[in-house]
Design a protein around this nucleic acid. Structure first.
Lengths: 206, 206
DNA sequence: TAATTGTTCGGATTCAACTCGGATATGCCT
DNA sequence: AGGCATATCCGAGTTGAATCCGAACAATTA
């Protein structure tokens, strides 16, 4: 039964622990991230950690929540601008910003992500998926000709999951054989050609 | 300093341990997969386990190797056939077989895969990437008009990583909103439209 | 069969997660 | 300001899983 922080001091402690979690993860990897490490880096005792988190898992959960909040906070305000863009521009804009976010603070979030992409429970990464799906829908709304695209849920699933993961995978690659620019261009082309191809195919019918 | 099994009995022990690893992982998840569990399921003692594996990590490594071998063993013989196929067929064939493999034995490999990045270092999944890149190259060779496609390494990276991950992600989804058939069709369309689009674009120039 | 080498076993050790009872700080009330 | 209630913090102690180790058992060789 962890308690909720009520005084500013306690809020600071909780914040320090979450931040320490990212730092320890980036420094030592999951395996070697112990509660003691985290507490040490945060400058508090293990006892304090367990005052606010039921177990180590919950620290990771809090980190996750923090990161999701960052991503959502970055993307949501961009949506009105993004929906007016050309599809390639949209992809590029999103990916460059996503990369910058992931590489902030010595790749703190990236490191976390590269673990989280796998072990985080489905519903924890959901907000990001929903957000991107929402963006997709709004984009389609703003470009009426796209309404004819079929199978939007499946394509959204592919583009979102494939895209997000490909970028994470790329950024964690120690010796990438292609540049990030190439990757972005490739993903943009992929999406753009898909849209064109589908529209062409749907052109005659209906 | 774990030793190498030399007698058949020992080989059987090692095999049983690796298999037990998959079973325990599928039953209890990573968190609750202890060396004792694994040893119990394998019908040996913990001591025996440590005779052949320096630590729990190495058991996972062996599982990983086993799985990679399975995948490679499945794909490689298909290559000659695949390279002659239409691109959509190729994607479909590969993905359905991949799914079947992952879902074999109550999703033993799938379960492992969804944790894999947790412990498996980047270079351990490399053989599969290389294999698929190899397939891509051979495919291009067999379809000379594709040689005009630019940026093959980047596109390969995108299609392989994006594809593999999307499928794993889909299969681990508890309540998918689209069918696997839709997913396969979507990925096939994606790739096919990309190829068509690029060829069209490259058509006039050069 | 005796000697050597490979294999298995399970209790002993180590280390990280987590608990608990008490010490200290904070905010509020008079 | 002084004092009380409660929030916060602490870290030694408990628990259990990973790992080690030395003795027992099996196979192989001569």
């Amino acid at each position: 039964m962890p308690r909720k922080p009520q005084q500013p001091r306690a809020h600071a402690t909780v914040g320090a622990i979450v931040e320490a979690g990212f730092i320890s993860l980036a420094r030592n990897g999951v395996e070697n991230t112990t509660t003691r490490h985290i507490a040490d880096i945060a400058g508090v005792s293990v006892g304090s950690l367990y005052e606010y988190f039921a177990n180590k898992e919950e620290v990771f959960d809090a980190m996750h929540e923090h990161m999701v909040r960052e991503v959502v906070g970055m993307v949501r305000p961009l949506i009105p601008t993004l929906v007016r863009m050309d599809i390639r521009e949209l992809v590029a804009e999103l990916l460059y910003r996503f990369r910058d976010l992931l590489e902030r603070d010595d790749g703190r979030y990236l490191r976390y992500m590269s673990y989280a992409a796998y072990f985080a429970p489905r519903d924890q990464i959901e907000p990001i998926n929903r957000l991107l799906m929402d963006l997709l829908m709004k984009y389609v709304m703003h470009h009426p000709q796209l309404v004819r695209l079929g199978n939007l849920p499946a394509m959204g699933f592919i583009m979102i999951n494939g895209g997000v993961f490909t970028v994470i995978r790329y950024l964690t690659e120690p010796n990438p054989t292609v540049t990030f620019d190439d990757l972005v261009r490739g993903l943009g082309d992929m999406v753009a050609h898909f849209v064109d191809g589908e529209l062409q195919r749907a052109g005659g019918t209906d």
